[in-house]
Computed example of a mutant assay.
Amino acid sequence: MTQTPMLDAVALAHLETWQGKSETLHDSITAASLAALSATLDRDDPAPAPGTAVPPLWHWLYFLPHARASEIGPDGHPRRGGFLPPVPLPRRMWAGGRLHWDVGNPLQVGQEVQRQSTIESVKHKAGRTGELLFVLVEHRFSNANGLALTEEHDIVYRSAAQPGEAAPAPQKSPLAGQAAWSRAIVPDDVLLFRYSALTFNGHRIHYDRKYVTEVEGYPGLIVHGPLIATLLLDLLRRQLPQAQVTRFEFRAVRPTFDLHPFSVHGRPSPDGKTVELWAQDHEGWLTMQGQATLA
């Protein structure tokens, strides 16, 4: 059945006016958030103290949205509009990103940090399963010493699932069977709840089984994309604890559900300068792929 487009030329032109919009926020790097994520990931880290560096991707514990309860939409996210465009497509996902750290100027506990965010682009596409809208946001994190981290964040909005809609064909990782490191992850309700709580993420797809299955049409709770990306770099840190990550890019390929364990894998390049990282579900299908560059 052909879906009626929700985004005509007028609506799309309105959304495109968000391109170039920016906002600047400030936050403090606190120890409590780092200690809580360390416990959530089952790590045996020393207690963070002033000067402790924020591990790669753990900056997602800061600059959290604090929408009032009356401003929350039916999916648990803040109602659309404001900084992000008010996209009417109902399904919103974190599709991937690219990050660059200045290892000589790390974010550290005790610092006051500024984040400048800019909407770089708003792009529409009609896909096989309906409309898609891609929003690219750039975040620049600075401390008293200057720019510490640059992040490009890919957000994709999708049409609602249709009855009988076929899922995209799964794919295997090009490096399947070639991992040097592997770790099994059990995405139980406690893990998903703790990560949602730490990131103040009210999106119901991560904890409300009735909503995610009956409204958004998924078979189970969805494991957070940022959590999977964090687990990829956590695998690298467990194997190479002294390594300094300067760049990381990742792409979500397929949703991961809480119905079965999944696994994260890594393989360093022969010269040790990069590490290929990927996640796969219980059937071996690729769910996320990424590459880390080391100093």
Results as ranks from 00 to 15, higher is better:
Trp18Glu: 06
Trp18Ser: 11
Trp18Ile: 12
Gly20Ile: 02
Lys21Val: 13
Lys21Arg: 15
Ser22Ala: 15
Ser22Leu: 03
Glu23His: 12
Thr24Arg: 14
Leu25Lys: 13
Leu25Trp: 07
Asp27Met: 07
Asp27Trp: 07
Thr30Glu: 15
Ala31Tyr: 10
Ala31Pro: 02
Ala32Phe: 03
Ser33Gln: 15
Ser33Val: 02
Leu34Gln: 04
Ala36Asp: 07
Ser38Ala: 15
Ala39Met: 10
Leu41Asn: 04
Asp42Ser: 14
Asp42Arg: 14
Arg43Lys: 12
Asp45Ala: 14
Ala47Met: 14
Pro48Gln: 06
Pro48Lys: 10
Ala49Leu: 13
Ala53Gly: 00
Ala53Met: 12
Val54His: 09
Pro56Trp: 04
Leu57Phe: 11
Leu61Ala: 02
Leu61Cys: 00
Tyr62Phe: 15
Tyr62Arg: 05
Pro65Ala: 13
His66Lys: 14
His66Tyr: 10
Ala67Met: 10
Arg68Ala: 15
Arg68Val: 06
Glu71Met: 13
Ile72Gly: 08
Ile72Lys: 06
Asp75Pro: 01
Asp75Met: 08
His77Asp: 11
Arg79Gly: 02
Arg80Ile: 04
Gly82His: 11
Phe83Pro: 08
Leu84Gly: 04
Pro85Arg: 02
Pro86Val: 00
Pro86Leu: 05
Pro86Glu: 05
Val87His: 04
Pro88Leu: 07
Pro90Gln: 13
Pro90His: 08
Arg91Trp: 09
Arg91Cys: 09
Arg91Asn: 09
Arg92Leu: 12
Arg92Cys: 07
Met93Glu: 06
Trp94Thr: 03
Ala95Asn: 03
Gly96Gln: 11
Gly96Val: 01
Gly97Glu: 00
Gly97Arg: 08
Gly97Ala: 04
Leu99Gly: 02
Leu99Thr: 05
Leu99Glu: 09
His100Glu: 13
Trp101Gly: 05
Trp101Lys: 04
Val103Ser: 10
Val103Thr: 15
Pro106Lys: 06
Leu107Trp: 01
Gln108Pro: 00
Val109Ile: 06
Gly110Lys: 06
Gly110Ile: 04
Gln114Tyr: 01
Arg115Tyr: 05
Gln116Cys: 12
Ser117Gln: 11
Glu120Pro: 02
Glu120Met: 14
Ser121Phe: 00
Val122Pro: 04
Val122Gly: 08
Val122Arg: 05
